[in-house]
Design a protein around this nucleic acid. Structure first.
Lengths: 351, 351
DNA sequence: GTCTATAATGGTAACGGTACCATAGCCCCG
DNA sequence: CGGGGCTATGGTACCGTTACCATTATAGAC
């Protein structure tokens, strides 16, 4: 084997120096352009960008995070891996992260007591530079306050409540839920069963309030027997639906506050010989892929989870970057949802 | 705000130098110990390891990959985001990656013609150091050969065929499928419907062969009307099941070659007033989460996708690392599967 | 006991960026 | 018209690790 030259570069990778040389500026200026620093003349920026495109330059993430000591590790902690949800979250987060030098690390926690959560959060804080928290973890006072104390930026994704200690990317659960209910009412339904979500998540109550508000505006009296407690799980949806369909005066539609429970509702209906949507309309919430592996396909509310995760990453990185400027900024970003109409809804059966 | 010292270290991170100092050796030796180099005296190794543990030292991945020029970007390309599958894949891959400085980048491709695949692969090869390919992409000659030509290591995950150009982490589809069929036969079933997978995936034929082999060994004649073509989608499962249940002599069990199609089978059965598993047993394959959001819960074959993805990453990193030693090593790693018995199976109805 | 292969270890220079400071030009104002 | 503040840019050092070579201890051969 030949003796290698001292240089150990991989050979093909384009470095910032080459870009700088081509653009006739210093590496420092290229760095500034790449990182969107403001103090660069427009003409210079153009020249650099041009060189970047010409050379097809990609910054080396390793070098970047080494030099900047900008930590770069971002944790995404989850409980209750509702797979569908998780995968979208990951896809989005990864998209956000891969544009930078940051690294995404995953962890599952199922600590139920505050002390354990607190300990885990403290440990986490020593290892990462930022945290993304999907529900229900973002509802934990213990975790959030611990992370805040360690001065680690945190962004909650898809948590309903905007709570002033923590940034948050979410949809308007109340409005979405209200729209869905109005849609059912508009079709002629007036006995609409509702399956509530897990009480430890604020999204649950927001969604329920939306349902109530729509009913009230339409002048439909609330019937508490039509409201069943669920826990966002398939199994809880099964139980709730059984109760709903055992009522002497059964509902003509069921609004389950997530898709898993809606899937359960459809299954129970079928087993009782009811046709969906002819005899019973069923709608869900979240637009997880399960809605498509159902027959009929589920009408539901689409949350752009992947986009939300990507936004969350951006928020996080921005706040990590300005870390020294110790003004903590808390953002509440509401993104639009979509009511997606598929085949699980029809007007109520003629009686 | 205070003027910062020139040092820009994050303060808390333990470096290799501190370890070296504590152990009374040079950083170089510590590095050798960490990386399992052989030329270190046992006593020295001990001393270093002790210091490492004492200081709770973790190598800085960024510095590491920068110095070693060990590339770091690994792509995971997918088509057909069967969410459940994808999320497991991601969880595993992320776990593997986060132990190193590598970065995972995601992309979706749905090029159907070879030329486009070839082009995409070529482009990809300029940007990343390794690629993970789940099915069906790993079956594409065009992609694999292009990546090979560019000397980018590739690992296929969960592809059935071991094909000599590409490393692969998989389960034994044939055996798993045979076991499942034997299980059904053991319960007394002899008319077992089968829903095939997508013909463009070799796993499909492996699974089908397993089914046939079990039947043959049990001396059950194959009845081609009991075999329906599916495409791994829910919808195709719906169609296939309808055909199966329209037979004059219906099967007492249906073996769908993935979970989505099994979910469809259950749905059709329920709609026809059949009870699962009393009137009809249904089994799937893959153990995706959908199997749990079904009533009854699905008996299926568990593939440890997350673990497989993690292994794949390890394989990839190892082969990236030894890149210069240009001996390409192709590995075929078969991991164990598990037949998970849940509630969708019962002995055939007494006739 | 000298000589040479080999094992164990250390020194130095990268790896590719960015933080920090210095500097040179510029504009605005008194 | 000189000085002060600001803007755009460059120079230098350093981030934490490993590759490469040099050096020294160790052992085996004759």
């Amino acid at each position: 084997m030949k003796k290698k030259p001292v240089r150990r570069r991989g050979g093909d990778a384009v470095t910032i120096h080459e870009v700088a040389h081509k653009a006739g500026v210093s590496p420092m200026t290229v760095s500034r352009v790449i990182n969107g620093n403001v103090n660069v003349r427009e003409a210079t920026r153009e020249r650099v960008m041009h060189a970047v495109r010409d050379l097809n330059y990609t910054p080396n993430p390793a070098a970047r995070s080494l030099a900047a000591a900008q930590g770069a590790r971002i944790a995404l902690i989850y409980t209750n891996p509702s797979a569908a949800y998780l995968s979208e979250l990951l896809v989005g987060a990864l998209a956000g992260v891969s544009r930078t030098a940051a690294q995404l690390v995953l962890d599952t926690w199922d600590y139920t007591n505050a002390a354990a959560q607190r300990a885990a959060a403290r440990k986490l804080a020593t290892v990462v530079a930022g945290v993304i928290l999907p529900p229900p973890l973002c509802e934990s006072k213990a975790i959030v306050s611990e992370l805040n104390a360690a001065n680690i930026p945190v962004v909650a994704v898809a948590s309903a409540r905007f709570h002033s200690e923590i940034s948050c990317v979410r949809i308007d659960d109340f409005r979405a839920s209200k729209e869905m209910t109005e849609y059912l009412i508009g079709l002629g339904h007036s006995r609409i069963g509702y399956i509530k979500g897990h009480p430890n998540q604020t999204a649950s109550s927001r969604r329920f309030e939306g349902y109530q508000a729509a009913l009230q505006e339409a002048g439909i009296a609330t019937d508490s027997s039509l409201v069943q407690q669920g826990y966002f799980t398939y199994r809880s949806g099964l139980d709730a639906t059984k109760k709903l369909l055992s009522l002497k005066h059964t509902p003509t539609a069921i609004f389950a506050s997530n898709d898993d429970m809606a899937a359960a509702a459809i299954s129970v209906a079928h087993r009782r010989g009811l046709d969906v949507p002819r005899d019973l309309s069923v709608v869900g919430f979240d637009d997880t892929p399960i809605g498509m592996t159902l027959w009929p396909e589920l009408t539901t509310i689409h949350q752009p989870i992947a986009d939300m995760a990507e936004s969350a990453i951006d928020l996080l990185l921005r706040s990590i970057r300005r870390k020294d400027g110790d003004t903590r900024v808390v953002v509440d970003q509401v993104v639009p949802h979509v009511l997606v109409k598929r085949d699980s809804v029809a007007p109520p059966p003629k009686k």
